[in-house]
Design a protein around this nucleic acid. Structure first.
Lengths: 215, 215, 215, 215
DNA sequence: GATGAATGAGTCTTCATTCAT
DNA sequence: GATGAATGAAGACTCATTCAT
């Protein structure tokens, strides 16, 4: 367990430096000097620099995968919009809490090595799939207008990436309004026109909702 | 002229390699071996690798800046939506025509050196400003619903970046439907709810329009 | 301390090579192969080749500055001639002891880079000033004939440089007679004619002296 | 002859640049840009950079050899001191007239390649021999005191080199006094003590002389 | 002859990784 | 386990020289 603590100490420092300078401009000397360990010690805990980076990347991806949950339909499940909101909120919270980590994923994405690049690509591909499936489901449920769900999924993914990327770079405390803003924009973008009439921002809660009965 | 032709030959090859392998994994040896020139020849035309890359980057940014035009309001000017469509179409056409070049900007963005990173950031910042100003204008004209225009501008920018990024990587011939899809999504996301009733995709043209008279 | 020892090992080898081949014909490969260290190791101890050379140069200049002492006049101080003799002896001893080092200063002087060239120039300028001041003092004390002390100072400096340069290149054990020869030549060149009658080489000691009472 | 004119044009420019920056810091680009000829043209007139330099060096050495004439003893020949004076005057005149050329020899001496270095060494060796022979002759003629003529020859050579080196770097118009100063210093340094009484500087001419009849 | 684009050997420098202590 | 000195492969850049036009 001592070992694990040590690893984490180094990871903590490396994370900060990678976020600040990017993968290529960060060298092992930077990491060990900040972590206050010897050169050799570094290689006692990590196979190499790429390995350390991979681990950090896996942390972000893992946490992100965990926080982005597939929409569930069924009795007892929250409304779809509510599930989207929760997903978004979880993602943005993570960004806020681990700004450096997410900055690595979002602002220094790509250009490491073939395998890591593919892993990031794969992650985004998965998320896109999930968004697309949700849209397809929405169409089936007659909540979403018919559209090229792949293209729209990319739009949605991109929008979130961008907002999240900005969030990871700039100081910001309260994500609530931001979540609503994104959700609002996205939902309006895909909603069935018929539902749009009922879609408005409830003044009291500032929340987007499709539930006319709440209104 | 001879000189310029040579430069362009090298740029052409370098472009392809940068797009394929990214900035850091590409070395001068790669470039010269593909361009079939000697090491010294490279330095006859470019100060160094970074310089060559900067030139390519400037090509993309310059062309993009040129193709993204500010919305003009006034008699004789096309409808705002039409102007958006034209911008989008011009951007996507460029991506299709110069897939490798745009891939550099979109998929290998960031992590070069401080200055180039800033230049890319600056470009996106400018585009975001432009989107935001358009939204603000739209609100004034009562075409756009009130919203946090900065946040929404990021969503829109991100959506376009993502679609464009995908486009630069995958083969695709016809951008028409894609343009409409993005436009549709984005317009619905920001439009005044009152206008949404009149907004639909005309079956014949496949075009989004706010003009109820077309209907 | 280990570090310092290593540095000195490299300096020792570099010194020999610089002395043999000169600065420009010596490359880092030469140095590391003689010092039997790896390329990287070299840069562990020195920023670059120029840096290493600068250090050697500074060693010579420092030691030379240290060994050339300003003439002191006053009760209890040795006779001026004796002080000159001691200076000269100290300089020549150093040359003999550190033939390679002084060879660098004397036979490969100039042509490195602007800054190092200036440093050597500056050193010689300082020495010339010192010689000139001694001559001026000698004139005041009526030991030295009136003359253009600047020009004569250059003659003296040049004479010493040349002898010393030869000494650094050729094998020679005993500097005593050489010191006397230079001193004799120089003193006769500048002495007040009135004193010259009393100036002769004492047969027993082989030493030049202005002290008539010894006679 | 056209060819020769061209060569000299290039030599003239190269001379200036070599004098200013030294051999190693001067590159072919410098030379051709100043001489306003194409790269290839350079190699039409000179085998290579080293060759061009060698030619300049040979110019200085040749001219110097020519201006330094062996002392002649015999009826109808000028006095030895007068011959020394003439030699010195000729050397210094050349320095003044061809400052850049002599600067190359004197201030950037050594460190080119083995062969050129040896050639310069050889030149100085010859001059030293000549000085030594003159001293030996002087001893025979009872004009010069007994001394280590080799060592003294180096002193004299060095003195002249230094003065000449300074002269080549700094602006100076009138060499007359300088010649006398050096001559005075050198002659006093080696003269038979008996002659020193008669040696003084004639006020009117400023010239050193051993001729008591002038007095 | 003249040109200047092209060449590639030579050099320096960096930095991730290893290994003896 | 920890250390940090040592390594050497990898890569960038320069510049004297050649050669096709």
């Amino acid at each position: 367990m001592e070992r694990q603590a040590r690893r984490e100490q180094v990871l903590r420092h490396a994370k900060r430096i990678f976020a600040r300078k990017g993968y290529h401009r960060t060298n092992v000397a930077d990491i060990i000097s900040h972590a206050r360990i010897a050169r050799g010690t570094f290689y006692l805990y990590f196979q190499n620099k790429r390995d350390l980076f991979e681990e950090l990347l896996e942390q972000v991806l893992g946490e992100m995968r965990h926080r982005i949950q597939r929409l569930r339909v069924g009795a007892g499940e929250p409304e779809p919009v509510e599930q989207l909101r929760t997903n978004l909120r979880r993602v943005l919270s993570f960004v806020l809490a681990e700004r450096e980590l997410t900055d690595i994923l979002l602002n220094h994405s790509m250009g490491f090595d073939r395998e890591l690049d593919l892993r990031i690509d794969g992650f985004y591909e998965k998320v896109t799939d999930q968004i697309q499936r949700s849209l397809d489901l929405g169409i089936q449920m007659n909540l979403v207008r018919t559209c090229n769900t792949r293209a729209v999924a990319y739009c949605i993914l991109g929008g979130i990436k961008e907002v999240v990327g900005q969030l990871s770079r700039h100081r910001r405390r309260d994500i609530g309004p931001l979540v609503e803003e994104i959700l609002d924009f996205g939902l309006r973008g895909v909603a069935q026109p018929e539902l749009l009439a009922g879609l408005r921002r409830a003044n009291e809660t500032g929340r987007v909702s499709f539930s006319p009965e709440i209104d």
